[in-house]
Amino acid sequence: MLQTVFSKNSLWGLLLLSASCTQHDGISKLPYYNTPTFTPIFVDSEKDLAAKVPHTIGKFSLRNQNGVVISEKDIEGKIHVADFFFTSCGVICPRMTKSMKLVQQAFVDDETLVLLSYSVTPWIDSVARLKTYSLTNGISSKNWHLLTGKKADIYQLARRSYFAEEELGFSKDSTEFLHTEHILLVDKRKRIRGIYNGTLVLDMQQLIADIKTLQKESD
């Protein structure tokens, strides 16, 4: 797996704080990410957004730990955070789940934020298994969905929509196992706004700060 010391957004956050490089009405704006290279794009006006950043998260339909179908309609007009895990993972995934719990705790009962944890072993992670995992790990938010479904659907969504493994995974298909420590931040219009290392507390602090920045952005 790709290992990084700081996420791209951690580094950009430091640059934004030190240089105040992109300001609008006193609010620092986060970059957009349009390709699996995660080259940051800054947009000055709304009219430039569609042309400069056409990429959005695609359609999906999966079941959560309660057996409820969750689709792209459930994230319409909401900020969401996504990660990719599997319940039998021994080291990295438990750390990522703890990181996601930090986000859960920072935004308790905030219905404007959705957390999506996609299983990369959906043939093992049944609804019942995800339910047990959620109870064992103290996942209590009604807006945090552990998702399972068809492997091909999840892998395509991960690699093509979320760029989960960056350039390394974009050209892979569902026959190659997907595993990444990345956590992605997506805005209300389904555009990627941040990538973070889910094993680092510093990155989670940056993620929480970036969510608050997105919440201040106009719709």
Rank of each mutant, 00 (worst) to 15 (best):
Q206I: 13
F163R: 02
G13P: 12
S171F: 02
G58M: 08
S71E: 04
S171W: 03
N143K: 11
C89G: 01
T121M: 09
P40A: 03
F170E: 13
K216G: 07
V69Q: 08
A164H: 00
F170C: 07
N34F: 04
S28T: 15
T4L: 12
G67N: 04
K150N: 06
Y133V: 11
I92N: 11
L185C: 00
F60V: 08
G58D: 11
K78T: 02
W144M: 01
S218E: 13
G194T: 08
S140P: 01
K150V: 05
W12H: 08
I192H: 00
P54H: 04
G67F: 02
V103A: 09
A50H: 11
L14M: 14
K151D: 04
C93G: 05
G13V: 06
A152N: 11
T180I: 06
V127C: 08
F84L: 06
L16Q: 13
A128K: 15
S71D: 05
V53D: 07
V91N: 09
I139D: 11
F85A: 07
E176K: 10
F38D: 13
K190E: 01
Q23C: 13
S119V: 02
L202E: 13
P122Q: 01
Y33I: 04
S161A: 06
E166C: 08
G13Q: 14
K151V: 06
A106K: 03
L185E: 05
N137D: 05
S99F: 05
T39Y: 06
S99V: 08
F86T: 00
T97S: 12
K78C: 05
Y196N: 00
I27H: 12
F84E: 00
T97I: 15
L135D: 15
R95Y: 05
F84A: 05
E167K: 12
I27N: 10
F60P: 02
K188T: 14
S18G: 11
V120I: 13
S7A: 10
I41K: 12
L62E: 03
C93K: 01
M1G: 13
